[in-house]
Design a protein around this nucleic acid. Structure first.
Length: 442
RNA sequence: GCGGGGAUGGCCCAGUGGUACGGCGGCAGCCUGCUAAGCUGUUUCUCGAAAUGAGAGCAUGGGUUCAAAUCCCAUUCCCCGCGCCA
């Protein structure tokens, strides 16, 4: 949620921000209309309550002295009548206003590029030694800042779907039979590779001062609505029937709501936490996209980084989260690029968002594997997470970034590490897997 | 699931219908050669330019009453015991 006082005092920055995001500014107009009415009503309502409190105090005195209170009772009754009428009206206005204010997106950061579309995101940097099929070279060059760090492949590499079948690493048909499309059984060495990735990421983040944890995989409405935006709510989430519970779409949701309605001491910040959990996404609106294999699925495992910090430090932590993720992919030797996401494609919580996109040789494309956002105080405001300062309590800033979304990384490993007759295991993972390659007979 | 007990400000705790007591901690100030101690004030949210201004707030949502932390109903969570259970 945005800062309502700031909105009242500096309308222009919110109009500018909404326009840059491609948001309909009618919601701002509507907000001001309702808010003005609300403030007027509040004055009247508070005056009525003030009068009532005075009379009630008088009654209390008279009762003590055995005085007659019939008169005063009548007065209170008529005031109560007015209060009830007005507060019903006020409640309606307030509900509508609060519904609308939750739709207003976070203020855009000055370094977020004003544009729209994946293909227009701002290129930041490329790293790695990509294996590029000769026909994809033009695309690669264009999207890697014209990098010369690549090796040309004369033959088109196999896609992950073929590799899964060939090496007997997943059963997608039977998962479809029992659960539907976009589900999977992971098998054998691919499953062990996933466990290795999880353990590797957990150790990695522990060494970088994150408290690693397994969160609840379901949370209630009030936590979820504070942690997400309305679009996520409508499109992505699974609801548990008969209970006030939603399956989490990322461990960011329980990690941030964990501290809801709390006031932290300044010396507790920053708080770095990491969640390891499955993520459940309905993927409504993604029909026809990435329908094969395990690239886009309803359930995947993810290790997430999350930071609570003071506002003045939050862009430093943003860089830290991006660097952590980068260091993981450097160590795994998966080629990637980083992009600054277009204003119109940002979620409403984020002030700025960087994606890391891995190179997928058989798709011949960079695809998203990491998303790092600075939500500034937007999410903390919705969930009421503050810290104490000399000048009163202030909202913390919250930041989130993927460390490893295992299914996408498994695909990246399969595609980037396919060799003549086997799939190589990235060196840093071998201590975790206990094997250094996947062969057909495994 | 059943029975019993509970939820009060950052924390602890008092308060059985008349408008939330006290302590700890935090912050600010005073005092002091320094530190400690001591003393004073302050500590949540909303409206307001601000006020020694007003309103709200005792787990949540309703109800009774001139008046509710207090009485009634429902719900949530925690603790103890019993039952069930990976």
């Amino acid at each position: 949620m945005i800062d309502i006082k700031l909105l009242r005092s500096d309308k222009k920055i919110f109009y500018d921000s909404c326009i840059a995001r491609g948001f309909d500014i009618k919601i701002l107009d509507k907000f001001f209309e309702l808010d003005e009415k609300w403030r007027e009503n509040l004055k009247v309502l508070n005056n009525l309550k003030h009068d009532k409190n005075n009379i009630t105090a008088e009654i209390a005195k008279k009762v003590k002295n055995n005085g007659d209170i019939a008169d005063l009772r009548g007065k209170v009754a008529s005031i109560n009548n007015n209060i009830n009428k007005l507060s019903d009206e006020q409640k309606t206005i307030e509900d509508e206003r609060d519904k609308i204010i939750r739709l207003i997106p976070n203020l855009l950061d000055k370094n977020a590029p004003v544009c729209s579309g994946d293909e227009n995101s701002q290129f930041i940097r490329y790293y790695g030694m990509a294996r590029v099929y000769k026909d994809d070279l033009k695309y690669f060059k264009k999207n890697s800042g014209n990098s010369s760090d690549y090796k040309i492949l004369e033959e088109k590499p196999e896609g992950h779907m073929e590799l899964l079948n060939e090496y007997n690493l997943a059963d997608i048909e039977r998962a479809g039979k029992i659960a539907g499309s976009r589900f999977y059984f992971l098998k054998n060495r691919l499953f062990k590779l996933e466990l290795a990735l999880i353990n590797y990421a957990v150790d990695f983040l522990s060494q970088r001062n994150f408290t690693v944890m397994e969160p609840p995989f379901m949370i209630n409405y009030s936590s979820m609505s504070g942690a997400t935006d309305i679009e996520t709510f409508k499109e992505s989430l699974y609801k548990i029937e008969g209970d006030d519970l939603y399956l989490i779409a990322t461990s960011e949701h329980p990690l941030v709501s964990m501290l809801s309605n709390e006031i932290l001491n300044m010396d507790e910040l920053p708080i770095r936490v990491s969640g390891v959990s499955p993520c459940f996404r309905r993927e409504a609106g993604a029909h026809g996209k990435d329908t094969k294999g395990i690239f886009r699925v309803h359930q995947f495992n993810k290790i997430e980084q999350f930071v609570f910090c003071k506002p003045e430090d939050s862009w430093d932590y943003f860089d830290e989260l991006v660097k952590n993720a980068e260091d993981i992919y450097k160590s795994l030797e998966i080629p990637y690029r980083i992009v600054n996401i277009c204003s119109e494609d940002l979620g409403s919580l984020a002030a700025r968002k960087y994606d890391i996109e891995a190179w997928y040789p058989s798709q011949g494309k960079f695809r998203e594997i990491v998303s790092a956002s600075n939500d500034t105080d937007y999410q903390a405001r919705s969930l009421n997470i503050k810290y104490r300062t000399k000048d009163g309590n202030k909202f913390v800033n919250t930041l989130n970034s993927t460390a490893v979304a295992t299914e996408r990384i498994l695909v990246a490993i399969l595609e980037n590490y396919q060799r003549e007759n086997y799939i190589e295991i990235p060196k840093v993972l071998v201590p975790y897997t206990g094997f250094d390659k996947i062969e057909r007979e495994d």
